[in-house]
Design a protein around this nucleic acid. Structure first.
Lengths: 140, 140
DNA sequence: TGGATTTGTAACTACGAACGTTACGAACTG
DNA sequence: CAGTTCGTAACGTTCGTAGTTACAAATCCA
């Protein structure tokens, strides 16, 4: 499992921005909804800016907004932006190359893992931030 | 990402056992191929025993062997046995319930995440330990 | 122009997970 | 009975994440 909360938090942030109708939201406001420290939010927003999903402006009346239509931001885009490394862990030490299994297992397993990750990615691509915000609105 | 090496190591162990033709392998021998400490292997073997994938016997001429045919052990079985928790992390703090997004986002996201995890699980079910050992043998 | 606001980022602490290691009792074989 | 091996407890190290404080830089508005 990706055992950081970055993906969930990033989705939360983007859903908030999707509902702000292009009004900039401050990291303080977002932190209030996520229930964490504004710096944690700003760190994550920095990554989202680099990924081209968000724009931020400092100063009075500053804040962050979506860089593009929420219908064009999929959950995979979000995952890809904020999580590094795959869904599955790999060997921590290089296995013994003198053993036939040790010499080959990492590569053979990596193939299957990549296939599984692709399947998960395809699934994540089916939902957009706009979809999530739409469901939130329906529940209001 | 599941950032432990337990899944990869467990697959490695089971592939070794699959090639042992029902001869018991010691944790010392397995540790030599995985390139780690025997206790790490025994800890993992304990989990695999509990999951019904492996049997172990102590004493001289003891060791571990597969509890069932390697063709009946899928990568999902292995993952499920040794990794707890999902592929994706969740919010570390409960979001603010006074905010419509905060109140709903965790549950709405969880649905999509479960779907993605199911897709990955289905993919892992397509490969067995016997498949991996077969490919190792082909490369020998 | 000057003060207030907000971002961006560095630095630090706290916490928990994973791994490696040592140690030793229990179980089993020959 | 001696030797082997597992099972497990205990401990230290390392690493990533989250939270916090602090402050410079950028921007807006009166």
């Amino acid at each position: 499992m990706t055992q950081s909360s970055r993906f969930a938090t990033a989705v939360h942030i983007l859903t908030l921005l999707a509902g702000a109708d292009d009004e900039p939201l401050t990291s303080d406001y977002v932190a209030g909804s996520v229930n964490t420290n504004p710096v944690v939010i700003r760190r994550l927003l920095g990554v989202l800016v680099k990924a081209g999903l968000v724009t931020s402006t400092p100063g009075g009346a500053g804040g962050s907004r979506l860089a593009r239509d929420a219908r064009k931001i999929t959950l995979f885009d979000v995952y890809d932006a904020v999580e590094s490394g795959g869904l599955f862990g790999t060997h921590s030490q290089r296995p013994n190359p003198k053993c036939p299994v040790g010499r080959n297992i990492a590569e053979l397993l990596a193939r299957r893992v990549e296939t599984a990750e692709s399947a998960a990615a395809a699934s994540l691509r089916k939902t957009t931030v706009a979809d999530l915000f739409g469901e939130v609105k329906k529940r209001t």
